[in-house]
Computed example of a mutant assay.
Amino acid sequence: MAQFLDTASGRRIAYHRRTGQGPGVVFLGGFKSDMTGTKAVHLEEWARRHDRAFLRFDYSGHGESSGDFEAGCIGDWAEDARAAITQLTAGPQVLVGSSMGGWISLLLARAMPEHIAGLVTIAAAPDFTQQGFWAGFSEAQREIIQRDGRLELPSEYSDSPYVITRRLIEDGRDNLIMDKPLSLPFPTRMLQGTDDADVPMDWAVNLLNHAQGDDIRLTLVKGADHRFSSDDCLSLIEQAVEDVLG
């Protein structure tokens, strides 16, 4: 059963936490996903086997947390993650960020590097509101979102559409990663599938080239898609976390 954290912003964040040895591991999920996903639950089981502290949580507007998804934005969700990490963990943590969670983990790496022992990204999607959504919109779609404040897009992951709001786009521009220096002064492992239809492989290569640090590696997995949840991919995530911890 989930527990809840009331943040200074008035949001109620649902989470699952286990105690264990540190550095702990924190899983940061993707856009419109929640903490019950395959990768989050698999990593929690890994943490149990290794007696490792572990935290997974839902951003506001996601899963069991309070709030309306459409009202949220990258800055809000990064703030939720920062509150969860600072209030629910002790000492530096290894962040495991999937898709949008990769973007948020990079924002946290920039804002609070003293809280981070290492970083693992899975199909990291920094700046996706700008280099993905906005860049891919037609002029007609851009006019709709500017006029109406929202745009509905079909989703292959659920029956309900993705709703992209003007606030999400504008806030995304305030939280870009790729437009200014990015220091990652801790072990960093990036995982990316070559058949990812949502995050192009060149985004991962660009991020590798952009980031500054002495221990950063990118692993490309031929044939893996955006879910990155096959048995082989889950094993690679485990290995990446263990490598960072080692």
Rank of each mutant, 00 (worst) to 15 (best):
residue 1 M to C: 14
residue 1 M to D: 15
residue 2 A to S: 13
residue 4 F to Y: 15
residue 4 F to E: 14
residue 5 L to H: 04
residue 7 T to A: 04
residue 11 R to G: 00
residue 16 H to C: 06
residue 17 R to Q: 13
residue 17 R to H: 15
residue 18 R to V: 03
residue 18 R to E: 05
residue 19 T to G: 09
residue 28 L to H: 00
residue 28 L to R: 00
residue 29 G to E: 02
residue 30 G to D: 13
residue 34 D to Y: 10
residue 38 T to I: 15
residue 39 K to R: 15
residue 42 H to V: 12
residue 42 H to A: 13
residue 43 L to Y: 07
residue 50 H to G: 01
residue 53 A to S: 13
residue 55 L to S: 00
residue 57 F to L: 09
residue 58 D to C: 07
residue 59 Y to E: 11
residue 60 S to I: 08
residue 63 G to S: 08
residue 64 E to W: 12
residue 69 F to D: 07
residue 71 A to Q: 15
residue 78 A to S: 11
residue 85 I to T: 03
residue 86 T to W: 05
residue 87 Q to K: 09
residue 87 Q to C: 06
residue 88 L to P: 02
residue 91 G to F: 14
residue 92 P to A: 09
residue 93 Q to H: 09
residue 94 V to D: 06
residue 94 V to P: 07
residue 97 G to T: 10
residue 97 G to P: 03
residue 98 S to I: 03
residue 99 S to K: 02
residue 100 M to V: 12
residue 100 M to E: 08
residue 102 G to D: 01
residue 108 L to S: 01
residue 109 A to G: 15
residue 109 A to V: 03
residue 112 M to Y: 13
residue 119 L to D: 01
residue 119 L to Y: 05
residue 122 I to A: 06
residue 124 A to Y: 04
residue 125 A to H: 08
residue 126 P to E: 11
residue 128 F to M: 03
residue 129 T to S: 03
residue 132 G to P: 05
residue 134 W to A: 14
residue 135 A to D: 12
residue 136 G to W: 01
residue 137 F to C: 01
residue 152 E to F: 12
residue 161 P to N: 13
residue 162 Y to E: 10
residue 163 V to Q: 02
residue 163 V to F: 02
residue 164 I to D: 02
residue 175 N to Y: 06
residue 175 N to C: 06
residue 177 I to N: 04
residue 180 K to S: 14
residue 184 L to C: 09
residue 186 F to P: 05
residue 189 R to F: 13
residue 193 G to H: 01
residue 194 T to I: 03
residue 196 D to H: 01
residue 198 D to N: 13
residue 200 P to G: 05
residue 207 L to S: 02
residue 211 A to S: 05
residue 214 D to K: 12
residue 214 D to E: 15
residue 214 D to P: 06
residue 220 L to P: 10
residue 221 V to F: 07
residue 222 K to S: 15
residue 224 A to K: 02
residue 224 A to E: 09
residue 232 D to M: 00
residue 241 V to T: 09
residue 242 E to D: 11
residue 243 D to I: 00
residue 243 D to S: 03
residue 245 L to Y: 00
residue 246 G to N: 07
